[in-house]
Write a protein that binds this DNA or RNA. Structure first.
Lengths: 236, 236
DNA sequence: ATACTTGTGTGTCCGTCGGACACTGGGTGT
DNA sequence: ACACCCAGTGTCCGACGGACACACAAGTAT
C-alpha cells in the first residue's frame, strides 16, 4: 500500500527532501506538535484533522500535503511524544535496577501523554525512537543468560504491564476501587462475588496505583527466578 | 447520566421487565448476537448501528428501542461474549494450576472473539459475568496469605498479560518478528539497535506466541516468590 | 520582463458514523 | 368500536476521514 510505505519513509527519514527548502509555515513537526497539544488537553478522541488544522489556522486538507493519512499523523505524534530513548548505561546494579529505571522513565512519559498507551496498541507503524526505547530495555538484559526471544518477551511483558496500569487505559478486570458505581453494585451482589467483596472490603480507602508496583515487583521477581536458573554457578 | 444508569440496570438485571411480553422479533439478545457475529467476522470497526441493523433486516433506529447507545450495545456484546465464568473448584494442586486453568479459559474465549481484548479496555460498563471471571481468579488465591489488594493486583496483572498477548491487540513494543516491514527496517539500522538486532536474529523463524507462555510463567513465578515469603513456616 | 513549472494551501463534495425526533401502523384493554 | 401504546420507520443533523479540482505564490528558463 502506497500510504504505508510513505509512512515508513517519513518516520525513518529516507524520504526525499523537498527539492526547495520549505518556504512556508506548515511542516510535519508543527502539525505533530499541534496534534499532541490537542491530545494532551482534550484526549485522543478530539484529535481530528479539522481540530488540528484549526489550531494551526489552516484548512484540514492542507494537512494532507504533509501527512498521508490520519494514521500517519498519529504515528508521527507518537514518535514525537515518546521522546529520545533513555541511556541506561550509567545505572549501577545490573539488569534489575536498569529495568526499574527504564520502566519509571517510560511511565513518566506516558503520564505526560495519557493518550500514548491507547495510541500505541493495535497494528500501526513504529518509529525509530519507539524502537530505541525497546533497544535500551533489551540491552539492559544483556549478560543475563536469557536468549534473544526471552529478552524480547521480558521487555514485552514489562512494557505491557506499564501500559495496563497507566492512566485510564485499562478497566474491566481492575480498579473497581475507583469506580464507585461498580463498588456499589459489587456490594449489592456480595453473595454472588464473595471473594471479590472480601478483597475489595479489605482495601477500603487505601491509596491505589492500579497495581503498578505490585506487578512490577512480581515480574522482576519472576525474571530473577529464571535468570538465577540460567546461571547455576554464580561465578561473578 | 441517564443512559449510563440505564446501562447498569440493563446489565445487572434490575430494569423493569416490559409490562407486556415482547411480541415481536427484536430483543437485546438478538441484537447482541448479531453484533457479535459482525465483530467476529469483520472486526469491531465494522460494528456500526447500521451494520448490525442490516443483519437483522431492520432500521438502525429500531435498535435504539432496546439499547440506549452504542456504548451500551458494546457492553452487552461483551457481557454476552465472555460467557459464564468458569468453576475452578475442581482444579487440583492449589492456586497456581487454578490460575493457569483460568488463564487458558480466558485466552480461549478471547481467541474466539478477537475483538474482546480491545473492547474491554478503557472506561466502560462492566457486567456481572465479566466480574464473575475475576471473582473466580481472586477466589483461586484464597489461602495464599495475600491480602485483598494483592489478590486483586495479581489477577489484574495476569489478565493484563492475557490482553497484551492476545490477537493483534498490541503492537509497538513487541512482535517485530511477525512484522516483516519492521524486521527489514531493523536490519537496515542494525548499528543503531545492536541488542535488538542480535535478539531478533537469534530467534529467526522460531514459532512465536507473543510471549504468552514466557510472561505467564514469569508472573506465576513472581507470585510464588511473594506467597512463599508470606508463609515463612510451611506447616501444611 | 515574461511564460512555465512546481509546490502549498483552499473549497467543494462524498460516504459513513452516532444519534435526535416526529411519524405510523398493528395489537391490546376497555 | 375505541383509544392507547409502543416497536419500528424515515428524515435530518453535525462530525468524521478523505478524494479531487482549483488558486496562487515563488523560482527558473527564456
Amino acid at each position: 500500500m502506497a500510504s504505508e510505505d510513505q509512512g515508513v519513509d517519513l518516520l525513518w527519514g529516507s524520504r526525499d527532501k523537498p527539492a526547495r527548502p520549505a518556504r512556508l509555515a506548515l511542516t510535519v513537526d508543527r502539525i505533530a506538535a499541534a496534534a499532541i497539544e490537542v491530545a494532551d488537553a482534550e484526549g485522543m478522541a478530539s484529535v481530528s484533522m479539522q481540530q488540528v488544522a484549526a489550531r494551526l489556522d489552516v484548512t484540514k486538507m492542507a494537512l494532507y500535503r504533509h501527512v498521508a493519512s490520519k494514521a500517519e499523523l498519529v504515528a508521527v505524534m507518537i514518535e514525537s511524544a515518546v521522546g529520545e530513548p533513555p541511556d541506561l548505561s550509567g545505572v549501577p546494579g545490573g539488569w534489575r535496577p536498569s529495568l526499574v529505571r527504564w520502566a519509571d522513565l517510560m511511565r513518566e512519559t506516558w503520564r505526560r501523554h495519557p493518550w500514548l498507551p491507547a495510541a500505541t496498541t493495535g497494528e500501526r507503524l513504529t518509529g525509530p525512537r519507539e524502537v530505541g526505547w525497546t533497544e535500551a530495555a533489551v540491552a539492559a538484559l544483556d549478560g543475563t543468560g536469557l536468549d534473544g526471544g526471552e529478552r524480547m518477551d521480558a521487555v514485552f511483558l514489562l512494557s505491557g504491564h506499564i501500559r495496563n496500569t497507566q492512566s485510564g487505559a485499562t478497566a474491566g478486570t481492575q480498579p473497581w476501587t475507583e469506580q464507585k458505581q461498580l463498588r456499589t453494585v459489587l456490594h449489592e451482589h456480595r453473595d454472588r462475588f464473595p471473594a471479590l467483596h472480601e478483597a475489595a472490603r479489605s482495601i477500603n480507602g487505601a491509596p491505589r496505583d492500579n497495581g503498578w508496583a505490585f506487578g512490577l515487583n512480581r515480574i522482576l521477581d519472576g525474571l530473577e527466578v529464571l535468570i538465577a536458573a540460567r546461571r547455576p554457578d554464580p561465578t561473578d
